[in-house]
């Protein structure tokens, strides 16, 4: 096992970089989109009535199921990869954002308008910070979906740059169990590391600020 990891380091390094770059770009896009969709659903009840249930349905679709559509729309390209990642995580972020906004205590709205925060000022100074604890949680959830989708996409989609998923698939092709398990381990470790050392820390900081934990 360890030997397999050692033998792989040459390929693993670049593949890890490729995957992480993809993740950063794709996750940023789906964060923006998901937040936007979440806020719209929260703000406009009609939209939520119309699309809320659909969104939940789409969310239950495994993210690799977006791969065929991605290939047909974008070919075997980076865009197709991004498509899979974004579709796989945006809705999870949107749903948790919307649900979170519902739990923002109405007193902040009353206090905010009383103090003269209207329009954009209200969103910027009241709603955005008030939803920070929720946003931090949706970040964590969104990340796990994004990472999963990307690995699935890389496994199936063969593009010019090789990510971790491709190495996994390569291991299968050569019937190399050691490589397969080694790559899986790396995937798990990346997922854990980002969650624990980045996102969970961020969430903790926000919660501490709000006095939700001491």
């Amino acid at each position: 096992m360890i030997k397999a990891l050692w033998d792989l380091t040459e390929q693993l390094g670049p593949a890890l970089v490729v995957s992480l770059v993809r993740l950063s770009i794709g996750f940023a896009i789906s964060l923006m989109l998901g937040t936007l969709v979440g806020v719209l659903l929260w703000r406009f009840t009609v939209l939520n009535r119309a699309f809320g249930p659909v969104l939940l349905g789409v969310q239950t679709l495994p993210s690799v199921c977006w791969v065929p559509l991605g290939i047909l729309s974008f070919g075997l390209t980076e865009q197709a990869m991004m498509f899979v990642l974004v579709m796989g995580s945006t809705f999870a972020i949107a749903i948790s954002m919307r649900d979170g906004l519902w739990t923002v205590p109405p007193i902040y709205h009353r206090a905010g308008t009383m103090l003269g925060a209207r329009g954009l000022n209200y969103y910027r100074y009241i709603l955005l910070p008030a939803s920070a604890p929720v946003f931090a949680s949706s970040l964590r959830q969104g990340f796990s979906f994004a990472w999963r989708s990307l690995m699935g996409g890389e496994l199936i989609l063969a593009t010019r740059n090789h990510g971790l998923g491709y190495l996994l698939e390569l291991g299968r092709s050569f019937a190399d169990v050691h490589q397969v398990v080694a790559v899986m381990l790396v995937m798990i470790i990346v997922g854990m590391a980002v969650d624990r050392w980045l996102l969970a820390k961020l969430e903790q900081r926000v919660h501490r600020r709000f006095g939700l934990i001491t």
Binding site: I107, Y108, R110, A111, T113, M114, L115, G116, I126, P129, A130, A132, R209, F210, G211
Partner: peptide
């Protein structure tokens, strides 16, 4: 509408915890 010329002190204070 609500406005700063009629300032309210709420029972549950309504202060912003992020400030």
């Amino acid at each position: 509408s609500p406005g700063p010329e009629r300032a309210v002190v709420f029972q549950e204070h309504g202060l912003f915890p992020w400030m």
